[in-house]
Write a protein that binds this DNA or RNA. Structure first.
Lengths: 144, 144
DNA sequence: CGGCATCCCGTGAGATACTG
DNA sequence: CAGTATCTCACGGGATGCCG
């Protein structure tokens, strides 16, 4: 326990190795990955592919709520960043298989940590939110 | 080591405790938290507040690239969800102090895990990206 | 100092239709 | 089956200006 409360050593708790990307776009890998995880579908897809291989329409049906446009775009993004691999089987009709790469697999670790935290503290957030909203309503609606 | 490669037990590796939010909005706490972490400024602010208390304009200057609009909005969001606390000192001129709550502090743990992963594998992603883009350029630019 | 209101633009993301 | 293309809307997020 040197400079933090949790005792967890990390790039985040270092003096300030992340210079807080002063410029327009971030070249910061952390922000980069965070955005990835933050987008609506990537994580869902990674979770499914973590279990087994999927074909395009199989993913489409499994997620159900995603448009094929977003499925394609998200898969392309994940493929580009090396999280998933795309294998085309030249059959008729064509079939395309998506898998997690090794990189994608290692990503499930830290992702799980965050997911577990979310599940554990989700109620706390909900409570805080209701609490806050209640106060806000008081301050806005009426002082009586 | 039952159903996963990493051996990391998690809600993500369970049979499928997250029913993949079929509906429009997600009530899923995981997605919720992920979005939080994914937005551009929240994490930066949490990191700074993890070190010490900050006043509004102090944060504004420290991040520098953020508009006061977004700073306000992000702080309100974090406050609403119970990550940060806002303390008004009724002085003239007024001063407002922002701190991390206990909840916010515990969040730094899993966040660090993800940040460390990002720093560690950032190069891999960059490489994969360049590799992918190079191929894409070949396939698009010319067939000759 | 610490905000909130307004305007404005770029992108995220869904719906739909068409192709190889 | 596995996509691509277009249209559209909603939201994130920056700039500016005003108020307590």
């Amino acid at each position: 326990m040197s400079d933090t409360h949790t005792g967890v050593p990390s790039v985040l708790t270092a003096p300030l190795p992340i210079p807080v990307p002063t410029a327009e776009h971030q070249a910061c890998p952390v922000t980069d990955v965070l955005r990835r995880a933050g987008d609506r579908w990537s994580v869902l897809i990674l979770i499914l592919l973590g279990k087994r291989s999927y074909r395009f329409n199989e993913l489409h049906r499994s997620i159900e709520g995603i448009s094929q446009r977003m499925l394609t775009r998200t898969l392309r993004g994940l493929e580009r960043d090396g999280f998933v691999s795309r294998t085309v089987h030249p059959s008729v009709p064509p079939s395309v298989e998506y898998d997690l790469t090794d990189l994608g697999r290692t990503f499930l670790g830290p992702l799980s940590a965050l997911a577990d935290w979310a599940v554990l503290h989700g109620p706390d957030i909900t409570t805080a939110r209701e609490h806050h909203d209640a106060h806000a309503a008081n301050h806005a609606g009426n002082g009586a």
